[in-house]
């Protein structure tokens, strides 16, 4: 699915002894470098992952022992209205918040990628919302902003002389938008990655372009953008995964309930409720694996497409 190379290096038929030796050394070096990850994976991840896969075919209430029940969990999912609801909420959230966040992060990073006085302060200011993250203070703050008598309505009424008293977080039609806004507001981490990516572009490209008399747009199209594609690709993949598995913001803002009327009941939140509120870990695990399939599919599509638009300086390892 996710691939770094197209051809497998393992095919060594008909190669000479010294070539095989070199290949063996290469394999050895590779495994030596990824050893920390492999050890961690086998020690701490593989068992929990396989266990959760096993749970998904059981009825397991955490307090007792899991009992195999075949594909019942998956069958029940089809009937479960809230399952579909949470899926819809998550798709809405992901499809709107991911592009918004990326666009904001991208353009602000471009704007701040200059050598101006005070630029570091700006960068910090725009990054700070991302570090208040999931604290309970955020929940209170968000309510104070979007309640019927909240700051947002006050500002609207003051600016436009209206008398708006919508409870933005209490209305099922608007509540998810406040969550999307919260996600967009916290674009700082993607921004930092874009900034780091911009800094990675070697200066001499621009110097050469200056000599050729290229204008700013020209430089952006032929230098900045192509060199940034690996980072854009990275942010896109990570935001897709983060968008579909969003939990903390939704949990904090609705106090874990998905209020109002499940309009902010994102998939991971529903899955959490099933596991720890209703004691249905089996069902919850089954849901988790459905999510893995969905996210995996989107990730795979983006990975497949990457060969046609992501530009790497080094086409191939070694």
């Amino acid at each position: 699915m996710t691939s770094l190379t197209k051809d497998s290096p393992g095919k060594d038929l008909g190669k000479s002894l010294s070539e095989r030796k070199a290949l063996f050394r290469e394999n050895l070096a590779g495994y030596a470098f990824i050893a920390p990850w492999l050890i961690g994976f086998f020690a701490f991840s593989i068992i929990p992952i396989l266990t959760s896969l096993y749970y998904s075919f059981t009825s397991y209430d955490i307090l007792g022992s899991p009992v195999l029940n075949g594909v019942d969990n998956f069958k029940n999912m089809v009937q479960d209205k809230l399952f579909w609801k949470s899926l819809a909420v998550t798709f809405n959230y992901a499809f709107i918040s991911v592009p918004l966040r990326l666009l904001f992060a991208f353009f602000v990073a471009l704007m701040f990628n200059r050598d101006v006085k005070g630029i570091r302060l700006y960068q910090m200011v725009y990054y700070i919302p991302s570090i208040v993250g999931g604290s309970i203070a955020v929940a209170v703050m968000w309510r104070r902003l979007f309640m019927a008598d909240g700051a947002v309505n006050s500002v609207i009424n003051l600016l436009f002389g209206l008398d708006v008293s919508t409870s933005w977080i209490g209305k099922p039609e608007t509540a998810l938008w406040t969550l999307i806004l919260l996600a967009t507001w916290q674009f700082g981490s993607s921004m930092l990655i874009f900034l780091a990516g911009l800094k990675q572009i070697p200066h001499f490209y621009y110097e050469a372009a200056d000599i050729d008399g290229a204008n700013r747009f020209r430089k952006f199209v032929s230098i900045t953008f192509p060199h940034l594609t690996p980072v854009i690709f990275f942010n896109l993949i990570m935001q897709i995964i983060a968008g579909f598995t969003v939990f903390t913001q939704a949990f904090v803002v609705s106090g874990g309930s998905g209020d109002p009327l499940n309009s902010t009941l994102v998939y991971a939140l529903y899955l959490y409720q099933r596991a720890f509120k209703y004691y249905e870990m089996g069902y919850s695990s089954a849901m988790a694996w459905v999510l893995v399939l969905i996210v995996g599919l989107f990730t795979a599509i983006v990975f497949k497409s990457s060969s046609s638009w992501v530009y790497y300086e080094s086409k191939e390892g070694n």
Partner: peptide, 11 residues
């Protein structure tokens, strides 16, 4: 109190 306001979980 309107349900849009009353059902918001608050402190």
């Amino acid at each position: 109190v309107a349900p849009e306001i009353a059902f918001v979980t608050v402190t």
